[in-house]
Design a protein around this nucleic acid. Structure first.
Lengths: 145, 145
DNA sequence: CGCGCTTGCGTGCATATACACATTTGCACT
DNA sequence: AGTGCAAATGTGTATATGCACGCAAGCGCG
């Protein structure tokens, strides 16, 4: 391996971050009318689906830093979309979606689907599969580091 | 196209953002001793390479929102790594790397290369090519939207 | 019981990201 | 010169991200 001269223009990090920005922009456009950002949509979706769940577990599911999740939860708590319930272990905060939260997620779902479809239609089935496959395999390989 | 039922778990945006977070983490580790974040490394590199360049042009090159760039420039200006020079057009601010900025970039370059190499070694040549190819083609397709 | 280690979380700080809006300058046309 | 539009940039506000640090609650053991 190695040997090839690498230019910062070939930076994998730079490229993937750029792609993330671009894709985020597209989803944001579709979700704008719900007031939800794409991260909030994912977060709300996981809480809705996973039932009572702790922050720590959520950070595993979402592959997001725990403290980042704490902040991201803020707006959703403030808007009454998610609530903190007391669990047996007083350290833990069981998160549950409120009726309003579930309703909003349900309303946002087709908008997300439209965004996802727009992206997939633009890329085509093969490229979509290639991209998803490459990302998934990369994450597996990079998990060890 | 379309027809397949999509679950939020298959969200392209969610996946690519997660990948970006993970990859960012790896590069950050390598660049930590320089005090540069990966975005700052890219930014400083572009300014160093492109000579005097305006914010607007940089935002095109980096595919980053112009106003984001304005903020990201802040720390680099504060640390004297990049300077604003007056150009003929007083609206524009020509950005140039200072000697300190160029020196730091030169010092950071091998550390970035080590990060890039670590990622590529972990993924292997084929997956690296697949990932880069998929991202590049995706960006082309999504540019139109 | 009480000591110490572990676990689960929040906070302070700094950066990254981008939309809407305001400001300044340049330029063309009258 | 004057007016009006376009171009280049900064700011207000809000979210996203994560490291270092601190705190409180559980847990094991003498």
């Amino acid at each position: 391996m190695s040997g090839l001269r690498l230019s910062p223009l070939d930076c994998t990090c730079f490229r993937i971050r750029g792609a993330a920005r671009r894709v985020t922009q597209i989803y944001s456009k579709h979700l704008a009318s719900t007031g939800l950002k794409i991260s909030q949509f994912s977060l709300l979706g996981f809480v809705t689906a996973q039932g009572p769940v702790s922050i720590g577990r959520l950070s595993d599911l979402l592959a997001t830093d725990r403290t980042t999740l704490t902040r991201n939860l803020g707006p959703l708590l403030k808007d009454g979309l998610i609530e903190r319930a007391q669990s047996g272990d007083k350290r833990r905060h069981d998160l549950v979606a409120t009726p309003a939260g579930r309703a909003l997620f349900k309303r946002a779902l087709p908008l997300w689907a439209a965004a996802e479809q727009e992206v997939r239609d633009a890329m085509g089935a093969k490229l979509t599969a290639d991209l998803h496959g490459a990302i998934e395999r990369s994450m597996e390989k990079l998990a060890a580091l």
